[in-house]
Simulated assay, not measured.
Amino acid sequence: MSAPDSPHLPADPATLAFLARRQSQAAKLFTDPTPGRAELERILAIALRTPDHGKLEPWRLIVLARPDFALLADLAQARADEIGADPETAEKGRGQFERARLAVAVIFSPKASTKTPEAEQFLSAGALCMNLLTAATAAGWGANWLSGWPSHDEIFRARAFGCTPAERVAGIVHIATPGNALPDRPRPDPARVVQWGLR
């Protein structure tokens, strides 16, 4: 009989060490180059190994490159003008796309299901974003999971990504060459946020 703390699968110390030091890079500091198509396809295939609640696949992905970002920046500015956004808000919406090099938009696309609530499907889309972030970082690239106010605007996401009213942007994961490494931010204290048992 195995000891209580022994793993059922072989331990992978290298992966644990990677996860212990993983941190997002600042997308505004990204530079060229970006992953080529073959490498990006491998990263995407790894990212798609995410919990999807019975093969529902409640998401779709859009790979975005330079020409796409020019269009997205224009759409964000047009939407900012329509809603009367202040200059700082408009720049934040437009600037994310103006500075971008390569990104993957993860679109939450819920499926009709009697077994899986929509909230759990949305969590699957978030898990896909995290898988994508982790896979890109493990491949040696800078990766940053962003969204920005335009992504939460129903009119913008319909114009930009062809989203139906039921769809939402779970995240936009930017991938490129990282800039200078930033100091790690303070992390949550397990003693403060972890409860062991119900009593």
Rank of each mutant, 00 (worst) to 15 (best):
M1K: 14
S2D: 15
A3W: 06
A3V: 11
P4A: 06
S6R: 07
S6D: 12
S6Y: 06
P7A: 05
L9C: 05
L9M: 09
D12W: 13
P13S: 03
P13T: 06
A14P: 07
T15K: 01
A17S: 02
F18V: 00
A20F: 10
R21M: 11
Q23W: 15
S24D: 09
Q25Y: 13
Q25R: 15
Q25L: 08
Q25F: 11
A26P: 06
A26I: 11
K28R: 15
L29M: 11
L29Q: 12
T31K: 07
D32F: 09
P33Y: 08
P33D: 01
P33G: 05
P35Y: 10
G36Q: 12
A38N: 08
L40W: 01
L40A: 00
L44D: 05
A47N: 02
R49K: 01
T50G: 09
P51F: 00
D52R: 00
E57G: 11
R60Y: 04
I62S: 14
I62R: 15
V63I: 14
A65D: 11
A65V: 15
D68C: 13
D68P: 07
F69P: 00
F69M: 01
D74R: 11
Q77G: 10
A78G: 08
R79E: 05
A80M: 09
G84Q: 09
G84I: 10
G84M: 13
A85M: 10
T89A: 15
A90R: 10
E91F: 11
K92S: 06
G93N: 01
G93V: 05
G95R: 07
E98K: 05
R99L: 13
R99P: 03
A100V: 01
R101I: 07
V104S: 00
S109L: 03
K111W: 10
K111M: 10
K111E: 10
K111Q: 14
A112H: 07
A112E: 13
K115S: 13
A119Q: 12
E120S: 13
F122H: 09
A125R: 06
G126A: 03
L128T: 00
C129W: 05
N131I: 04
L132W: 05
L132H: 03
T134F: 05
A135C: 01
A136P: 00
A136N: 03
T137F: 08
T137G: 08
A138V: 04
W141M: 02
G142Y: 14
A143G: 09
N144I: 12
W145I: 07
L146T: 14
L146F: 15
D153R: 06
E154P: 07
I155Y: 04
F156S: 00
A158K: 13
R159C: 03
A166Q: 12
E167Y: 10
E167M: 08
E167S: 08
R168G: 06
V169H: 01
V169Y: 01
A170E: 02
A170P: 06
H174Y: 14
G179A: 04
N180V: 15
N180A: 15
L182C: 09
L182E: 14
P183N: 03
P183M: 02
D184R: 15
P186V: 01
R187A: 12
P190N: 00
A191S: 08
A191N: 13
V193Y: 15
V194C: 06
G197N: 02
L198I: 06
R199Q: 10
